[in-house]
């Protein structure tokens, strides 16, 4: 990395220069010690503190079991969003092989794109040894890209029920379910799975079975008192259907939430988690214990990005 590359790339993203995105992602993914200062400045340059407001891009998480149709759905969503003139970045996470550490990044193959269209970016990430459905740099990528793109879509690894991580990254979480598989219904009922913002029943071209799945989910949600969660049926294979309804549901959720508050609270808990990973008990003790630490982080500038918050915590704890 050239000196100031981080600030330069971050500045370009903040100014809406989409051509900076691939190099910015290369930097955010880098674990080389030499790249870390640049990585931190890139994130700082796209933080609310630097922008003066929350990044405008809407981060939408798409999760669900393996093979349910997440990528195909994202392909249809991208097409619809591009037709509305909105720019989209997709970050698609695939699992890594335990044995070799390598990964086949297969989501991309399912998302159609026109190479002449500069307003659509698709980037694959390998989950590595992480289990929550995301890759280590996914959060940073979503944060930085949301400063430049109108919509950032994050596809998780298809991991069934435990992919809670995406809720810590996305403003709106869509869980995609397969018609006919009762699993999701059971997970929601039993509380294993958090209630998502939008539930998507895909492959509705398969007919009655999809309609039934939608009905069952609706009644389960109502019985749990989750009246706000919309259930949308889609078919993502051409000719796609239900896509505009899904976009409307996603939009409605976006409009209904207090984005600034939710994002800054997500950043704070993430910062605390990272601080804990770095300094362990000793670090928390230095901040006066867990409750005190929570108070300290809450008092910090709500516009700081995660590395910025961690750095501020380090200062408070007088660890450096």
């Amino acid at each position: 990395m050239t000196p100031n590359a981080g600030a330069e790339l971050g500045g370009r993203l903040a100014a809406g220069d989409l051509s900076a995105a691939p190099d910015a992602l290369n930097l955010l993914e880098s674990s080389a010690a030499a790249d870390q200062p640049e990585r931190v400045s890139l994130l700082a340059a796209t933080s609310p503190a630097a922008l003066g407001h929350e990044p405008a891009g809407h981060v939408v998480g798409i999760t669900g079991p393996p093979g349910v149709g997440k990528s195909t759905l994202i392909s249809a969503l991208c097409k619809a969003l591009r037709e509305q003139g909105r720019t989209v970045a997709v970050v698609a996470v695939d699992p890594s092989s335990k044995r070799s550490g390598g990964a086949l990044l297969g989501d991309r193959a399912r998302i159609s794109f026109d190479p002449a269209d500069d307003g659509l970016l698709i980037r694959s990430m390998a989950a590595g040894d992480r289990l929550g459905g995301l890759a280590r740099p996914t959060r940073d990528a979503a944060a930085a890209l949301s400063a430049a793109y109108d919509v950032v879509v994050v596809e998780t690894v298809g991991v069934g029920q435990s992919e809670t991580e995406v809720a810590e990254v996305a403003d709106t979480v869509c869980v995609v379910v397969q018609p006919g598989s009762g699993d999701t219904l059971q997970f929601i009922k039993s509380g294993i799975m958090e209630i998502p913002d939008v539930l998507v029943v895909t492959k509705s071209d398969l007919g009655v079975i999809a309609q039934r799945a939608r009905r069952d989910l609706n009644s389960a949600l109502r019985s749990l008192g989750a009246r706000d969660t919309k259930v949308v049926a889609v078919s993502a294979l051409p000719p796609a259907s239900g896509i505009s309804e899904l976009l409307a549901a996603v939009e409605a959720h976006h409009a209904s939430c207090d984005l600034a508050a939710e994002r800054s609270s997500r950043r704070r808990s993430q910062a605390l988690a990272e601080f804990g990973e770095l300094f362990g008990r000793r670090g928390l003790d230095a901040l006066g214990g867990r409750r005190a630490a929570l108070k300290t982080v809450a008092e910090l500038d709500s516009g700081l990005d995660v590395p910025g918050l961690v750095a501020a915590l380090v200062v408070s704890a007088k660890l450096n």
Partner: peptide, 22 residues
């Protein structure tokens, strides 16, 4: 880490994928 999108891509699709995927 391997990006393989299957058969029948145009040269510009391949170039765009290479750039976007770093």
């Amino acid at each position: 880490d391997v990006v393989y999108e299957g058969i029948r891509l145009t040269p510009s699709q391949i170039a765009a994928s290479a750039k976007q995927e770093g």
